[in-house]
Design a protein around this nucleic acid. Structure first.
Lengths: 134, 134
DNA sequence: TATGGGTTAAAGAGAATTGTTTAAGTTTTC
DNA sequence: GAAAACTTAAACAATTCTCTTTAACCCATA
């Protein structure tokens, strides 16, 4: 049973950073280059981001499959489709049209190509009206 | 830039699980053995645990090093040592003796051996009086 | 413009994680 | 006690992560 996501090195760097040290100072303390301190710090923060996203997923775990947005669909037609499917299940989506598009943009930027859906997207819906994509 | 900690497989299993399916049913759906579903679910939950612990660490990041508890120390003498060090820095620890021992037990069970400290422990303290161990 | 603080890319070695199978165990439930 | 649900261990290949070096780059500002 290991600890959290962060390695000893990563925790060390984050803590020193929080104390206000520069990367060069930290490099001297732990005996490596400032470039290395930079990459360690970067991957540490990336790990923290992933930890957040993981818990976010757990919160929305009780969502159910709503529909699939096929590849090639116009991005602007996605919200209407979601609203229609959701109302068919008696759930009110907690986002408006713009909100949904933003949420999608944040959630799966790599599935989008300018105004179109490049790769098919699975849409999930909560009883609360919370939506997420995969 | 990858997503969260969980793999596709792990998310799939967790979601099916939340829907109330048995491991065997999931195994049939995703085309593998129930033993494998068990393993996947287990490592998924382990990842969630690590995500929690990681964010926990971030919350206590602004703590400063307080002292080291050397290997072999009696567990019951740990709180007094911490109280003394903390008051030397003008900070009031937000736990009592029993609270500290419990916190230590939860935080680093593998460093303890019945009534004694097996492996040396680093103690960190917040301005708030929050304590954590490493 | 030189200096300090920070970032980036490429490459490599070592370590950790993942999904998988098989085969043997529990625990729960009827 | 028999069946269903779940857990565990050992082993393996494939993949991903971590740390590291080197060498270059950006951007303030004194």
């Amino acid at each position: 049973m290991k600890d959290g996501l962060l390695t000893d090195r990563q925790r060390e760097v984050l803590r020193h950073r929080r104390q206000g040290l520069t990367q060069q100072q930290i490099a001297d303390i732990i005996g490596t280059s400032k470039a290395n301190v930079c990459t360690i710090e970067k991957s540490a923060l990336e790990n923290v981001r992933r930890a957040r996203e993981t818990l976010q997923f757990m919160y929305t775990l009780d969502a159910r499959f709503l529909c699939e947005i096929p590849s090639g669909e116009d991005l602007l037609s996605v919200p209407d489709r979601i609203f229609r499917e959701a109302s068919g299940r008696g759930v009110k989506v907690r986002y408006d049209t713009i909100g949904l598009i933003n949420r999608l943009r944040e959630s799966l930027p790599e599935h989008l190509q300018s105004r179109f859906v490049k790769d098919a997207i699975q849409v999930y819906l909560n009883d609360d009206g919370e939506v997420y994509f995969e």
